[in-house]
Design a protein around this nucleic acid. Structure first.
Lengths: 157, 157
DNA sequence: GTCGCTGCAAAGTCTTTGCAGAGAG
DNA sequence: CTCTCTGCAAAGACTTTGCAGCGAC
């Protein structure tokens, strides 16, 4: 019998599905589905980078120059998406906030202190341990984030 | 034979020692030891809180109203201390940056999303695992941070 | 049509910087 | 004495907000 890797299926969320979820979310809160909102979601989906609001804004301006999307709308939409747990933000030292689509499987980050690049990883053992620690300390855990800082292969030269 | 718990000794760094380290650091870089710098270090030492620059500034103004320490000096000194690895900064979502004395034993954080309080913990298993992951991915790890978000006991009511 | 959304610019935060006088070495 | 530090206020960076017209429903 063929075994389906459901985990993989969970992880690779189609844009179509994402869009459906987004529309449902908007409808539920009597919010409107606008071109700007779609473009922001789509641009985030098609970029596997961890984007700053400014970087996202630039990408959108390049790809859809006629839209003249304002940076304020990018901020407003990111807040909306973050409140709804569709995107997650990461903040590092002085480098400001970066956003990533949160619909992907949970993962942690390895951050290169030289070039700023981010590598993702998941470790089951750590995940389990975190839950255990929260339980032991009477904490009702809702989320977590972990970053390892150092030099990536390239920057070790 | 009596066994000394060196771990405990490492952890409980005396203020006197801290001050010596600080002075050595300053001398090494041809920087001056000023009252403001001492007061900032001392206030951080006597507060087990994780402080924002603003909170630290307030504490200092209350305790040493005659000094009229400027917020700019607080920022400048925190940067200096952070560059020298004497303090560490944590950044969360929108809540800005908080600083803590880094001379303490390494630890991670449980952050209450309701009241903002921070609880510290250390878990050997996670620490080891982090090193292993960095190694496996060809990363030269220099530091890491981990935060668990959720509701603390008080805020679960 | 209504009411939320958008871009723009103005206003807020938080942090850094320039400067002239104060003070450590 | 010299050269760094400091407080102040001004400047910066990043983010949010007010508003009038636009556009989804």
């Amino acid at each position: 019998m063929p075994k389906v890797n459901t985990n993989f299926n969970d992880r690779t969320i189609e844009y179509k599905q994402l869009l459906i979820d987004f529309k449902a979310l908007l409808k539920k809160n009597t919010l409107k589905f606008t071109i700007q909102r779609e473009v922001i979601l789509e641009t985030m989906y098609n970029s596997d980078e961890h984007l700053t609001p400014e970087a996202l804004h630039h990408l959108i301006q390049e790809k859809y120059p006629d839209l003249k999307t304002g940076i304020a709308t990018v901020y407003r939409t990111l807040s909306l998406l973050e409140d709804s747990n569709m995107v997650t933000s990461l903040s590092f030292g002085a480098q400001g906030k970066k956003y990533e689509l949160g619909a992907k499987e949970h993962h942690d980050h390895l951050i290169c202190t030289e070039c700023g690049n981010i590598t993702e990883f998941v470790d089951e053992q750590i995940e389990k341990r975190q839950h255990k620690i929260a339980d032991e300390l009477g904490f009702k855990m809702s989320d977590h984030s972990m970053q390892i800082y150092g030099l990536c292969k390239n920057c070790q030269k």
